[in-house]
Amino acid sequence: MTTPLIELHAVSREYGEGPPALDRVSFSVRPGEAVAVLGPSGSGKSTLLNLVAGLDRPSAGTVTVDGVRVDGLGEAASARYRRAKIGMVFQFFNLLDDLTVADNVVLPAQLAGMDRAEARARAADLLGKLGVDRHARAYPGRLSGGERQRVAVARALMNRPALLLADEPTGALDTASGEDVSALLTELNAEGQTVVVVTHDLALARRCTTRTISLVDGRIADDVSAEPAR
């Protein structure tokens, strides 16, 4: 049996008074899966993503990713974990406007201590693969939303992460650009990349994932595997 890449066991997250953001959530994700975490605002999606990314700690339960007990990491170890294991794609790209496209993509490798020439070569390869290599010397503000998201994906893949986390990756894009990014995520998964997409968009989930986990009030309401509509 394949060892899960992600495994959450009885995970809860509480913030002071009131109901928990997550309430005894348990599930696993196998290497190579494409999973969507669905739910309305306030359902616990962002909290779940932050726990898997090591940006937050659970109040109870365990979070294990690629053999690492993420819930037990300190701040410095969490940062190293993200550099080594996680690629993150955000709704609003989070690119640095004062760096060129190529420098944005290279940045994670520099932080991880990769050789400069190797990092530049990998960045060029990723930008070419994702169809934005002609913008390598441009600044992000000169690019369309879809192009910026492709650059963000290149940056996320720079350190060959075990897991790609995408937080509402098409939320700031027009329909055509959103479909392009969905197709890109589908292609990456077909090549073996494990992908978890956090979204409220059922159509996006159906296009680029084969499994949907639905959250309601911090609990798993449904966990369904199916062939995506492509």
Rank of each mutant, 00 (worst) to 15 (best):
L5E: 03
A10G: 15
E14Y: 08
Y15M: 02
G16D: 11
G16Y: 04
R24K: 13
S26M: 05
V29M: 09
R30S: 13
A34R: 11
V35K: 07
A36D: 13
K45A: 01
S46L: 03
A53Q: 02
A53W: 10
P58I: 09
S59Q: 06
G61Q: 11
T62H: 11
G67A: 10
R69K: 09
G74T: 09
R80C: 00
R82A: 03
K85L: 11
M88T: 07
M88Y: 08
L96F: 10
L96Q: 15
L96H: 13
D97M: 03
D97L: 07
T100K: 01
V106K: 09
L107V: 07
L107I: 10
L107N: 10
P108L: 07
L111K: 06
G113Y: 03
D115L: 07
A117F: 12
D125K: 15
L127Q: 15
K129F: 01
R134N: 13
A136I: 14
R137K: 14
G146Y: 02
E147D: 13
R150A: 01
V153N: 03
R155S: 00
A156S: 04
A162F: 04
L164T: 05
L165D: 00
D167W: 02
D167G: 04
E168A: 02
T170K: 01
T170M: 01
L173A: 05
S177K: 07
L184E: 04
L185Y: 01
E187M: 03
V195T: 01
V197N: 11
H200E: 01
L202K: 14
T209V: 09
T209C: 04
G218S: 07
R219H: 15
R219E: 14
V224G: 02
A229P: 01
